[in-house]
Amino acid sequence: MSELRFEGVSVRYGNRRRGMTAVDRVDLTVPDGAVVGLVGESGSGKSTMARAAVGLTPLSAGRILLDGQPLRHTSGPRPVQMVFQDPYSSLDPRMTIGDSVAEAVPRGMRSADRRQEVARLLELVELDPARAGAYPGQLSGGQRQRVALARALAARPQVVVADEITSALDVSIQGTVLNLVRRLQRELGTSMLFISHDLAVVRYVASEIAVMYLGRIVEHGPAAQVLGDPQHPYTRDLLAAVPGWGSAGPATAPPGVAAAEPADPHAPPPGCRYHPRCPIGPLARDDREVCRTTEPTTDHRHATACHFAAAEPLLQVTGRPA
């Protein structure tokens, strides 16, 4: 049983005067054996969540619990492991892939056993164990990403964090990595936090989806519900923006919203953070001043942080059955 739980986690960068809160009082649970997909645009704080979970970024508030115990980063492989976005930077170019994987195998193992373990892991990620002596430079991006997965698994993690692991890959290769992630997750039952900006990718691997906007989680629920019956207007906008095969009509948002710029994470707007871009917020409806002043709670159907989540009929999300 391994459940990863973020409790009121905040992460601030920079100093007091010119800093930014990348993650702001976030609660999120990755249940045992589940894959939670975390989506959001750049600057939303997704990657900071990942780095916080593995202890690369210190928390400024809150705590992260693994099976109810606060995470401690003592010596030895950490119980939460991570796969990084860029396969060209996540493997040491001067180390064989076998050595890279072996580095994460828990210590106190005879070297023969260690080698066997490396071979087993490479096989697990569908790489020929005979290539253990290869250097990253000799591998394609997709193959490197599989090595990175093998290294994460070598540490016998209880939770794996995958941060945009396919976004640096060509579409033709992306599928192989996604298929592998799904197969491994089903076989090993690892809990996983799967971060991506691509809703279609997240939909393919995740059982639950959390949507992040400017350091806050605005909606969280089972994947089918969040995608099929999105409650938060931001989730709906995200879904509507995914290029699809259906004829996407021109945006129906009010003009002020259509041209709105993404908010600056250094100076998040007061109240509901989405209100300057919200198609059902104060820009569209004069009576919704509350959005400008009060931050919504998540006491709604599948945890949506919006004052008017339930009140608004769904925007037409054409051609996208759940």
Binding site: G76, M82, F84, S90, L91, D92, E103, A155
Partner: peptide, 9 residues
């Protein structure tokens, strides 16, 4: 890869 090594203990 340095971050990964740190995470790997």
């Amino acid at each position: 890869f340095v971050s990964a090594a740190r995470i790997a203990g």
